[in-house]
């Protein structure tokens, strides 16, 4: 492919797979998220924000050229600022405060959903295990970031007026930074991905990155789904044991006592988040109970014992 063809292949990929099409993002921009959903998104997306400068540090360490490093260093600056109270992470924390979250709770990362954590960690791992060229290619989702930030800014001003102007500064800053970063990254990829093999690897890396962003929103969306037993699935006592079972057309699943407690709360009216906090109240000392609830429900949804109401 010529550089122009490669660029258009990358743009086509983004047009099809970038997370602006994700149902959760669509609902956000249409003004259909509840304040709880906005808060879950802000709290979880903060984990992604914290991974960005770490990933950029890894990329920096792969680069031989001072010119490249000088340019890439901007990104870390943008996120971390020049001192306390400055930079993108700080702006995200003001968004967190503006939507009604406790700043220090967000910073401690204790309530990050396991699916979000896994997706973000996969991004860092992807960059760690890639060479410079493909890790830069993976960052090219920024080519679509300027646009999504502009839409988001407009959507928040229009649909979520309860989030004060002060909270929107991150989006505003990114509408400028993302296109600049993207231009540099794209220029680098087009200049260095010359062989078919390299071009193929760049496209694959960007595809993986799109998948990661998609999974991140999947996990957030799943946390607000209101699960209930799928039609045809039934909770019953195990006739040949002491425990409980979910029995359905294709399989039977053995439940532990805590599994049963979760399934009983899956009545189609409570979100997984709500079930997790209810169980936290019931078992104040149980370590990692929120993660367990999210993972357990995700597992039962995968085998279709539970469905979203």
């Amino acid at each position: 492919m010529s550089p122009e063809e490669l660029e258009s292949a990358l743009r086509t990929l983004l047009a099809e797979r970038y997370h602006d099409h994700h149902p959760f993002n669509l609902r956000m921009h249409e003004g259909r998220l509840s304040p709880e959903e906005i808060r879950t998104w802000v709290r979880n997306r903060y984990y992604y924000q914290t991974r960005i400068p770490i990933k950029d540090g890894i990329i920096l360490a792969k680069a031989e050229s001072p010119e490249f490093r000088r340019e890439w260093l901007h990104r870390i600056r943008d996120h971390d600022g020049d001192g306390p109270g400055d930079g993108g992470l700080e702006l995200w924390l003001s968004l967190a405060e503006a939507v009604g979250l406790d700043r220090s709770e967000v910073e401690r990362l204790t309530l990050v959903l396991p699916g979000v954590r896994a997706a973000c960690d996969d991004y860092v791992k992807l960059v760690e295990s890639s060479d410079l060229l493909t890790s830069v290619a993976a960052s090219l989702t920024e080519m679509s970031a300027g646009e999504i930030m502009r839409e988001r800014l407009a959507a928040f001003e229009r649909h979520y007026p309860w989030v004060g102007e002060e909270g929107l500064r991150y989006f505003r800053s990114r509408t400028v930074q993302a296109p600049r970063d993207a231009a540099h990254g794209l220029h680098f990829v087009l200049a260095h991905a010359r062989s078919d093999e390299d071009q193929r690897r760049c496209i694959a890396a960007l595809e993986r990155k799109c998948e990661i962003l998609w999974r991140l929103l999947d996990a957030i969306e799943a946390a607000h789904a209101r699960p209930r037993l799928a039609p045809g699935a039934r909770l019953r006592v195990d006739p040949a044991g002491t425990g409980d079972l979910v029995v359905m057309a294709e399989r039977a699943i053995r439940l532990s006592p805590s599994g049963r407690e979760i399934v009983e709360l899956c009545d189609g009216t409570r979100s997984v988040e709500a079930i997790a906090s209810l169980l936290r109240e019931r078992h104040p000392d149980a370590e990692g109970i929120e993660d367990d609830v999210h993972e357990f429900v995700a597992g039962l949804r995968r085998v279709r014992a539970l469905e979203a109401a």
Binding site: R236, A240, A252
Partner: peptide
């Protein structure tokens, strides 16, 4: 069968 543990 139920007595043997069959559920399906």
């Amino acid at each position: 069968a139920a007595g043997l543990g069959v559920v399906h």
